[in-house]
Amino acid sequence: MFEARITQGAVLKKLVEALKELVTEGNFDVSSTGLQLQAMDSSHVCLVSLALREDGFEHFRCDRNMAMGIHFQNLSKILKCAGNEDTITLKAEDNADQLTLMFESSNQDRISDFDLKLMSIESEHLGIPDQEYSAEIKMPSSEYQRIVRDLTSIGDTVLISATKEGIKFSTSGDVGTANVTLRHNTTPEKPEEQTIIDLKEPVALTFALRYLNNFAKATPLAPVVKLSLTKDLPIVVEYQIGELGAVKFYLAPKIDD
């Protein structure tokens, strides 16, 4: 049997809100080490990789590895019924065709349970090598959200270039052009307000803004976002979810003809 209890149920709500428009369905792969998900969008341009550690939960038990096929819009409908302060418990019997979600209010005076029908999903996993990136940039997630939102109103694609001067986001469209440059800045006292650029070599890549903007739906999950760039490789946009784990978005670059 599988059982996972999380006191901060709001994290699960935010997580599903961040994913549900990008990927319609995917397998929650549960094992004794935690819960993982790898899912691509329908056009195979971007990929979501979620890893939640077993020790990040208040309680975690998984007797047998299982792939639970989730329809994210449906899971979202159920999670909307959970209060922001609720503790959420996920439960499933071995080889079950449903996932039970139990919501408990913080003062334990309201308990509800919902069963989500599980799907059988042929998952296509991609092997993503661990590797060194040419540039790794940590910045406030709200800053990333603002930049991609602003640029989406100007153009369709963004050229992201990392140099020793900083990281520059450039776009152009019918109304004109836009450039936003962030410099390495460790002046703010709070680490989550700093911009840290770790540059091994200059790199410049072009991406579709629509997806980068969609990744910013994960902003409520973390104060900091990390962007990793290497020539001719997908960008990684990564949000650490406290001690629980991380969600990473991969987006394939635009390629010159």
């Binding site: 056009s43 991609l126 092997g127 635009k254 390629i255």
Partner: peptide, 14 residues
């Protein structure tokens, strides 16, 4: 003009 790459061009299918 740049074309949108697909993930399979960068990562191997398992």
């Amino acid at each position: 003009k740049a074309n949108q790459g697909r993930l399979e061009s960068f990562f191997t299918a398992l």
